[in-house]
Design a protein around this nucleic acid. Structure first.
Lengths: 331, 331
DNA sequence: ATTTCGTTTGCTACCGGGTGCAAACAGGTG
DNA sequence: CACCTGTTTGCACCCGGTAGCAAACGAAAT
């Protein structure tokens, strides 16, 4: 594999200085038509293109954004990644995908991203603990951070989220209107502050409607299997008369897992015996096999906003966007 | 935001030269215990860590691998991305995720990745045409390329794939054994050479069993909706007596879309009226709501191999790995 | 012919490290 | 005390660009 051509080599071939070559590749630079033509010809012959690494070093901007992901069990991540990469690329930015599930812990990963001089970091995880991150010396040399689709809770780190309060109000209103009175809430991470907040809203709105007793089901993580397991252990331990009549799951994956278990293992009907609500509106929720009532996050808008903040067009601040309740047959 | 500390600054603080600082951060470099301690102390105080950008420029290795993805409709991409990032990171490499669906065409994206000096490029797409890529001057300055989970067909570009011939043989054997005799094949990209090859194998094996007539259903792309549409138009145009008794879909997403349509729109039973087979073994295929017979790709092994080749441990060459037939209730 | 002004081009210095060589500095021998 | 050997350290130069200044150039104005 041959070495790549450099500006100097092109310069020699075109009979100019290397700075003239650079100018030919810098939009809006002051250069004579004639020289530009000569340079571009020589460049084409040598298959030259500027080295972005060297440029980044000199300009102190890599146009790379690190995206930290920890929850690959949620297929909803994929459309988010699609839209995110698309929008970033439209801004001339590129996403460095970092898996913070296993070897890398958050701090290590952040350090690493920092060393790579990324222009920004997007925290796009479900279960990471904000506490680990707040330990870091933020605002020093660290790249600007943003949290996507989850509360931030880190001082000075803005988040772009779907309005959880509004979402849960709409959901509870809907459920109450349909006549449900014995609600349950399934969380995927009992100790996580974001999850606690959602549960809090859920509980709150039910109390405002005079319903005080809310069953809580804890799944071990955000996966279909964990959702199934949680609902299994609940149904096994709870007499039919004392059971919830509607189960709100923290995300669709938990909900779909729960639905499978409710129907095939316990032979119960949805929504007649137990209604189910999810969160995210993952593609398969609409399938007739599930037809899950859920809440759609405003993905396009959220990403538009976060990328706008990274690109510097928007003021970096926490933004809360309204989503949409999608009512289907599971309630 | 303060500027990051440089090796020179740390050197001044520690009372040594900048090269000694560099040595302190280079494993195995020749440096006295005493100096190393001093340097590390000063570095900690100044919050210094080496600039990987500058290092990459000097060493001509970025430890970044570009991953080109074009098909975000297939949720199966997500576990692949998870395993891929995990393995790459375990090798000290990092994945740059590039969406080649929209703004970027393949050639443009490759050029861009090239300019960023990535160490390798992984083509992890479904629908990209190899023809566009073979136009490029490969082997010049271009980074080494690898194709994941799809045939390569580009001269000198190795692929790591699941053995399609074996897979289709096992599938056809299984279907024949179950007594199916009127097979159909649904493709998501009728013109794509990889797809043609699979179809060819399918046809071939059936012919070896004396079945010559194979219905072909063409979906517009690899999505559940396209799968539903293809099966709808087929069923509407085909008299019940002439219909296939088993439908093999090129991937699970097409299959799941088809199943929904077959059951809810046409009221047919699976597998009694029409059996369905998918490909990939996406998580939800196992759910009781679908219970789809499908073929699992050896994801871990495939990624192990491709990362091994990138890391230079394995000889770069096309590798074909056997997958596993997963029989469920849809056949 | 001289001055003037705008365009074009070359140059120095720099971004933050890495490489290989040579000098400086041990410590142990004869 | 000179000599040898192995370790440690400093240095010049390089990676491939960018920024901003100053010189060179050419055409119009005096």
């Amino acid at each position: 594999m041959r070495k790549r051509a450099t500006a100097k080599e092109v310069a020699d071939a075109a009979g100019v200085s290397k700075w003239t070559v650079i100018r030919a590749f810098t939009p809006g630079a002051s250069i004579a038509e004639e020289s530009k033509r000569k340079v571009l010809e020589a460049a084409a012959a040598l298959n030259y293109s500027p080295n972005l690494l060297a440029r980044s070093l000199a300009t102190n901007a890599t146009h790379q954004v690190a995206v930290f992901v920890d929850d690959f069990a949620n297929p909803q991540k994929l459309p988010f990644l699609e839209t995110l990469t698309e929008r970033l690329q439209a801004e001339g930015l590129v996403a460095v995908l970092i898996n913070i599930n296993t070897h890398f812990d958050h701090v290590h990963a952040l350090l690493h991203a920092d060393q790579r001089q990324v222009d920004a970091v997007i925290l796009f995880g479900t279960a990471f603990r904000s506490e680990t991150l707040s330990d870091l010396q933020l605002g020093r040399g660290t790249p600007p951070m943003f949290v996507l689709a989850r509360d931030s809770q880190i001082e000075g780190v803005p988040a772009v989220v779907c309005d959880a309060e509004l979402a849960l109000r709409e959901i509870v209103d809907h459920l109450h209107e349909r006549g449900y009175r014995r609600p349950g809430f399934m969380t995927g991470a009992p100790a996580l502050s974001t999850a606690l907040r959602r549960r809090h809203h859920f509980t709150d709105f039910w109390q405002q409607k005079g319903v005080d007793e809310i069953a809580v089901l804890s799944a071990e993580k955000y996966s279909a299997e964990a959702g199934a397991e949680a609902v299994r252990s609940y149904l096994e331990q709870t007499a039919p008369t004392g059971r919830v009549d509607v189960l709100m799951c923290e995300n669709d994956i938990l909900a779909l897992g729960a639905m499978d278990e409710i129907r095939s293992r316990f032979g119960l009907r949805i929504p007649e015996d137990i209604a189910v609500v999810g969160f995210d509106n993952y593609e398969f929720c609409g399938s007739p096999a599930y037809s899950l009532t859920t809440y759609e996050q405003p993905r396009q808008e959220m990403i538009q906003v976060i990328v706008g903040m990274i690109a510097g067009r928007l003021e970096p601040e926490t933004v809360t966007l309204p989503g949409t309740l999608v009512v289907r047959n599971s309630t």
